[in-house]
Write a protein that binds this DNA or RNA. Structure first.
Lengths: 224, 224
DNA sequence: CTTCGACCACGAGAATGCGCATGAGCCGCC
DNA sequence: GGCGGCTCATGCGCATTCTCGTGGTCGAAG
């Protein structure tokens, strides 16, 4: 984890940086807004601690520039005690949190940890199997990077198969997970959907049929 | 976006609730810890404002119970001035942010905005999707730089969709976040609003309908 | 090797029901 | 009372899904 500390008070900067290093982070330091902005723009930080009152370019502007440039790393702002309007401006500019001066170093550390933890939670949920990618959150699937146009049942089927990659999945199991309750078991709907899905997924036999048992989604590293 | 305000001071509660409603949120109110806990446990809020000193059950306990129960919505705590230990306790219990009393209402609003957009994974106060811009700060939306004239429900719908860009959002989810507690679910109101919103947003099919599942706002940089 | 039975693939048509537009009534606000 | 916004009902169009029938494939047994 790499952290940038932008703070013009050299004493405070060192204090924070030391505490962070002690906690196991890699720390870069900057002492004015321009330097800080440049570093944040070019280096990949996991979090930034940013004073609001800085020489050359103030903290608000720095955040705004980063955000306008697509930089999304968590930013923790340091504000003067009673400047609540600064806090509002900072938060609206895109800061994720702030601490009012004077602060306890442990509080800053706790917040940095929280920010990093939270930022880690936003990775999109994707399952990959060979050329097939499934994004459960967006309800989208693609093969070789090409978007598939799936109906909701087709998607549910693919989803279930991909969640059980490598396993043999019986027809009844599929029925039970694709439909709410009682469903006419003697119909070949599943086969029909498997057929359609195979067609949409394309050539490589990704969905293998295990005669008498059900279907199996090919694991990516399958030595046939 | 739907928000719960838990505060026993009726005056303060109303003050906050009114300000939030003015900003386009749907607000539920609770006046003691138990009521607040129950509501937060059963209804899907996008954020909660929670006083720390409450009758029947204090704020810390409320958060702890929610978190222990898997509830992850952002919680903004209201603490008494200078009670540093309360802040720490609140954060440790699982609160996401706090404001010390007495506070400026705008500060609370700014923090709520920040919490909501952070929970959705956005870093700046403006959310952009293709030609559409949503200004969470001013509660305004524009297409190609032209201001849209939206009714409050239309705005809430657009806001929720844009906060969940790329994800499929179900009709019930939309209902739950656009209306407060009791609302007749079996009607096609949402479809009507989607229709109107589409008309106002103009040609490009920004709101995609996913048959059987819900709606999805098209992400701008669509990775095909 | 051949034959038989069970199982599976696939195409095409039929039926379902979802989503959309539209417009009428209703409510609250000015 | 007029107006703008919200809700609800109706009917249509069409994507999706289900059914059915035929033909193909596989495995085992004679």
């Amino acid at each position: 984890m790499r952290i940038l500390v932008v703070e013009d008070d050299t004493n405070l900067n060192r204090q924070l940086s030391d505490a962070l290093k002690e906690s196991g982070y890699v720390v870069d330091q900057a002492f004015d807004g321009e330097e800080g902005h440049y570093l944040g723009d070019t280096e990949p930080y996991d979090a930034v601690i940013l004073d609001i009152g800085l020489p050359v370019m103030d903290g608000i502007t720095v955040v705004e520039k980063w955000r306008g440039n697509g930089k999304g790393m968590p930013v923790l702002m340091l504000t003067a005690r009673d400047r609540w309007s600064d806090k509002v401006a900072g938060i609206d500019a895109g800061a994720d949190d702030y601490v009012a001066k004077p602060f306890h170093v442990e509080e800053v550390l706790a917040r940095v940890r929280a920010l990093i933890r939270r930022a880690a939670g936003h990775s999109s949920s994707e399952i990959v199997c060979g050329p097939v990618r499934l994004d459960t959150k967006a309800s989208k699937a693609s093969v070789d990077g090409v978007q598939l146009k799936l109906t909701s049942h087709e998607f549910r089927l693919l989803s279930y198969l991909m969640h059980h990659m490598g396993q043999v999945v019986s027809r009844t199991e599929l029925v039970e997970h694709m439909y709410d309750q009682d469903f006419d078991r003697d119909s070949n709907t599943i086969e029909v959907f498997v057929g359609r899905l195979r067609k949409k997924l394309g050539g490589g036999d990704l969905i293998e049929t295990v005669r008498g048992l059900g279907y199996r989604m090919q694991a990516p590293t399958d030595a046939l």
